Simulated scan of single mutants.
Amino acid sequence: MHTMEELKLTGNHLKGSRPLLTFSSNFEKDAYWKLLKEMLLQIFETPKDHRKAKPFHDHVFVFSIVDDHIWFRNYQISVPHNESDKLPRGSLDKMTMIEVGPRFCLNPIKIFGGSFGGPTLYENPLYVSPNQIRALQKKKKAGTFAKKIKAKTRRKMHEMANPLEPDEFADMWKD
């Protein structure tokens, strides 16, 4: 559950500044997490001596693993703006982190040995495709419809096996 205050994402960082990339210690557990860490490094890391990159860091990309999903958060590094409150180099006491956004969650499904094919190096055993979920929902709906049809046929068979006796007062008020 998320509150609206949590999702305001009031921070802001400068365009072109380089992010610090941080990874949780879970990325060192298994070989496929190490591979995914390297892939994320190559995707999000600023190339060395890139002509449009600024020479400072003012935001942090955080990658963490929770429930076999990779969670991404983007934080701004905030320091005091007063000239008298300037921090000496290396001091982290007064620095704060403000979430900037976006935030997202990655669910790795398969890792292949080649690009878009080859031997499967990793397959997520917990992943259920949306098509399978839709098929199960359709079967469930079809099951309820089949139950209704069976109930109707059972009722008709019961009525045929147990006919009602004729009512002796049915014609009483007809003249």
Rank of each mutant, 00 (worst) to 15 (best):
I98N: 02
D93V: 10
T153N: 10
T120N: 03
R154C: 11
L164Y: 07
V128D: 09
G143P: 03
P130C: 00
K139C: 05
E99S: 02
P119V: 08
K148D: 14
A151N: 12
A161D: 14
A135E: 14
L136H: 08
E123F: 02
G118S: 05
G143V: 01
M157Y: 06
D93Y: 04
E159Q: 15
K152A: 15
P163T: 08
Q137F: 04
P163Y: 03
K94M: 13
M160G: 07
K140D: 13
P130T: 02
E165T: 14
E159I: 12
I109W: 01
A135R: 06
N107D: 09
M95Y: 02
M95C: 11
S115A: 06
F112K: 00
L92T: 15
V128I: 15
P125Q: 04
M95P: 01
M157E: 15
R154N: 15
K140Y: 09
P108K: 01
L126H: 11
N131V: 06
T120C: 12
A146K: 07
R154H: 09
F145P: 00
Y127V: 08
G118H: 04
L106T: 02
P130S: 02
K94C: 10
L92Y: 09
K110Q: 13
N124P: 04
G113L: 05
N107K: 05
G113C: 02
R103W: 00
V128H: 04
L164F: 10
S91P: 04
T153F: 11
K156G: 11
R155Y: 13
L126K: 09
A146N: 07
L136P: 00
G143I: 00
K140P: 00
K138W: 05
T153H: 11
T120F: 03
A161W: 05
Q132N: 12
G118C: 06
M157H: 11
R134Y: 05
M157N: 14
L164A: 15
A142R: 05
E159V: 13
K94L: 13
L164W: 02
L164I: 14
L106K: 00
L136C: 07
R155S: 14
R134G: 00
Q132L: 13
K140L: 10
G118L: 03
T153C: 07
P119L: 03
K150H: 10
I98Y: 00
Y122C: 04
E165P: 13
T96P: 01
F145L: 11
K147P: 05
P108R: 01
A135I: 07
A146P: 01
L136M: 11
K94R: 14
P163G: 08
N162I: 06
Y122P: 04
K147S: 13
K156C: 09
K147A: 15
S115H: 08
S115L: 05
K140W: 06
